[in-house]
Design a protein around this nucleic acid. Sequence first.
DNA 1: CTTAATCAGTACTAAACTAGTCCCAATTAG
DNA 2: CTAATTGGGACTAGTTTAGTACTGATTAAG
Lengths: 160, 160
Amino acid sequence: MLRISKLTDYATVILATLAAGEKRLYTASELAELTRLSPATVSKLLKKLHHAGLVSSGRGSHGGYALAKLPSQINAAAILDALEGPLALTECSTTHSNCSIAGSCHVGHSWQRVNMAIRHALEDVSLSQLAGLDRSPLKSLDLSASRPTVSPLTRMPRPR
Amino acid sequence: MLRISKLTDYATVILATLAAGEKRLYTASELAELTRLSPATVSKLLKKLHHAGLVSSGRGSHGGYALAKLPSQINAAAILDALEGPLALTECSTTHSNCSIAGSCHVGHSWQRVNMAIRHALEDVSLSQLAGLDRSPLKSLDLSASRPTVSPLTRMPRPR
DNA sequence: CTTAATCAGTACTAAACTAGTCCCAATTAG
DNA sequence: CTAATTGGGACTAGTTTAGTACTGATTAAG
């Protein structure tokens, strides 16, 4: 339920790599090596992240990418927005939508609230926390409930 | 970002209809009329909801569906689970997954926590609240932050 | 016992989305 | 100028989603 796309997850890994690294420009291929992701994919993601203002870039030779803000000032919601757009839980939540059962439907409004709750949870998680740079507990998250960690995601693309 | 599928949204409307109605069996076609959804789709969804134990059913003529529990005892997380399976935010969260960058990746663990926070938010929203039957404020949700309501989703299928 | 209504299970299809790759133009340091 | 980069697309295969259809099982009622 409610999964984020692989690409968004990849992007987070890239951002975390930048957050953990030195304060300099990293080229796309450098980041590809560091993250073990395919160069093409890394490049595509960095473009999106740049578009969203999460990373700054330098062009030409000696160009590359760096975080546009401090890791503590980038949150999970912004990353999601950058990669998946500001889509909401249901289509109701978008402004231009016409619904045939508008009158009789009282569900939409409640989804909105759930949506907001989730958004706030995401806004409370900074990149430094995601990257594990920040040792302080995650704000407003119930840590006692976290299950035992399992092995992480397959991040290398399937061969084609 | 983080959208639920249309079908899950439809299912919620169906459940809300049952929650708001009389305490009797409703046939699939009856519910299709009430919700203005296609009978085939309603039927499919009810089967899934039955499978997940959210509705009970009676077969044969005079058969139909009813909620298996009180509306206050059904929560949004259960509905999501029923329709979309217990998928998590990232594939990391599933038990059998092998990841090529396992050693160097510290991101997975944090997503898990976010995942839990979201799950708890969903568990705190009951069907009675989704259906608008419950006038009490949604537990642990920041209502002051809810944006002005916009028009809900197009729920009728596109013609084919 | 026959019939009609109804759920159960499954298979199928078209459309939409996702992930991944590739190409070429623009930019810049040396 | 040339080599190294990013910027902005287009393209494709594969997967998922949404929607429909069919066939069998079950049950109430005549």
